[in-house]
Design a protein around this nucleic acid. Sequence first.
DNA 1: CTGTGTGCAAACTCTTTGCATAAGT
DNA 2: ACTTATGCAAAGAGTTTGCACACAG
Lengths: 143, 143
Amino acid sequence: MHISYEIDADVSLQERLRFAGLRPTRQRIALASLIFAKGDRHLSAEELHEEALGVNVPVSLATVYNTLHQFTQAGMLRILAVEGAKTYFDTNVSDHHHFFVEGDNEVIDIPSGSTMVGNLPPVPEGMEIVNVDIIIRLRKKRG
Amino acid sequence: MHISYEIDADVSLQERLRFAGLRPTRQRIALASLIFAKGDRHLSAEELHEEALGVNVPVSLATVYNTLHQFTQAGMLRILAVEGAKTYFDTNVSDHHHFFVEGDNEVIDIPSGSTMVGNLPPVPEGMEIVNVDIIIRLRKKRG
DNA sequence: CTGTGTGCAAACTCTTTGCATAAGT
DNA sequence: ACTTATGCAAAGAGTTTGCACACAG
């Protein structure tokens, strides 16, 4: 579904939240506008929390976590299993893959045009595919 | 390099460890034989720890972590970034990919014959590829 | 009003670290 | 002997939970 939220961001964010069965509270609206303001992003709970505090939206970290998970469940975000401890959330829910820059811990989208998945292997008995994640790990060329 | 460790597991494990610059201590030998006894495996530190205790090798969890990381650095293991908190170590160091069964948190190797990576996308300026990880997330068919 | 959301702090899980003791060469 | 590993317990990072208060409908 598409809501043209370019016209009035706050109003349609409210609609999106309502549509997802989430009450459009101050915090959720604020977080949603931070998350979805700048197009595709990858962020951790910590990052979003700091960003919120930075623009004087004093949410608690717990609420950030709750909100991110609620948005994920609503299909507005996607969890990105990259590495170790930190969980990243991806605002691009469509089918695409990722570069991951080691050292920087930076996640970069791979445009979905660059089709890469060739023939899938046979899936084990009684199982079905949820999704296919490709992560290309990069390092800076020493130079 | 290949050492035929089928002949006498303990002796050649010692050699492997020595070759990696690791002193072949009781704990490392015991853990190595648990890890490499049964062919390709995916295990977490917790699992290995319990397994060790189960066969009366009383190592501490800290030592298990240390050992797994040392083995990884020595190229005998590979870290598997699957999901969230837990770190999995893969005894299959060669080029291959994985199924991940959601719910069970089970990791299954995809035989490297099933080539899947087609055309890789252009790599960002100044970067080089470390490796390509493909994880196919599965769920049990409800039935 | 009524129910859901939020903030806080405490709890939890996985992992790492510091330091005294034990073991390898 | 001399050096490196180990064990323990404590610290650390990231995430979650429980409960009183606040807010949306």
